[in-house]
Design a protein around this nucleic acid. Sequence first.
DNA 1: GCCTCCTTATATCAAACTGATATATCATTT
DNA 2: AAATGATATATCAGTTTGATATAAGGAGGC
Lengths: 181, 181
Amino acid sequence: MGKDRKIDMVILGLLSHEDLTGYDIKKQIDEAIGFFWKGSFGSIYPALGEMEKAGQIKKLPDRSSGSREKIKYRITKDGKNALKEWLKEEQSSNDLKYETLLKLYFGGVEKPEVSIHNIEIFEEKIKADLNVLKWYKSNLGKVLDNNEHLHYYLTVTFGIDTYEAYLKWCARSKKLLKERI
Amino acid sequence: MGKDRKIDMVILGLLSHEDLTGYDIKKQIDEAIGFFWKGSFGSIYPALGEMEKAGQIKKLPDRSSGSREKIKYRITKDGKNALKEWLKEEQSSNDLKYETLLKLYFGGVEKPEVSIHNIEIFEEKIKADLNVLKWYKSNLGKVLDNNEHLHYYLTVTFGIDTYEAYLKWCARSKKLLKERI
DNA sequence: GCCTCCTTATATCAAACTGATATATCATTT
DNA sequence: AAATGATATATCAGTTTGATATAAGGAGGC
């Protein structure tokens, strides 16, 4: 089988915007797409090595003056084609892994207070993240004419819409659980 | 480090309701908690072996008449304690990995039609899954007095609320993308 | 009776990914 | 001058996925 590495597409996608180092890629994953995707150094660096061998990306000469090593990558024609092929694949895997819901599902073996507390922890995290997303959205509003910004905007609104639904659910769930105390 | 296996808690949680085989566990993961958690045979069977050695679960004698092997497991006192400890842990990892959003984020390198099509595929899947969740909810409505059923109910409403938010977002996103054609 | 197909059931493996750790340089603050 | 934190590459053990192997039981057709 082989070649089922999603991290490759993340790297190609990010490099299609600009040249980046492995460290830059990790930062962009965390900051820009972190609310719907994850990626670690342990998958990024090996992938960069293999993708360079495969000719999807290439190393840029290190122009920095100091001795500090820093490897910038640029996407190749082959890489861009691979990215476009993937975009047109019908199959997409959309997976949640929500430990908070897992704890809630099995929460019947403990007092309702435990489940309420777990929902509250989740709620606080979502509230904080929602503020960040709203801040992103307000910044994007000014430059929506740009095509790439529209795609960014759509993912941000996905986050905002779902997070707002989460918060409403949190309020109703806590209420139902409190009736059991 | 060691012992960061979430599958253990899924197994303990399911066994806290009733005795199950590995195959039963896989079925319950897919059917009951599949919209917010995943689990494969490749993680279930090895975990069952190790958890039995650790004394959190025990094998039940095979009472089936035929030669067909079938191993039922029951949770032990130690297992129940481990489950309750985990429920009280403040830290929970809640991760989305939405390939549809990834494709949308990088969709600027292709025509808007490609992104619209990807949203439509996602939309159809969500509509179908939402119907299943609504059917679950209507069945649960009758027996909400039971404590375990309340916890099940709360996870189902989480699914319904978020899926409905997804669908609203799909409609608005498609509209915005169609303006670019 | 026999053949086919689907479901039940356990088990293993390569490939992918995470989270932690190691190492070292550079920049800023104390 | 020392300490702290950010930048940067790299590797590893442990976890998980998705696929595959194996085999028995049941349902239906002919």
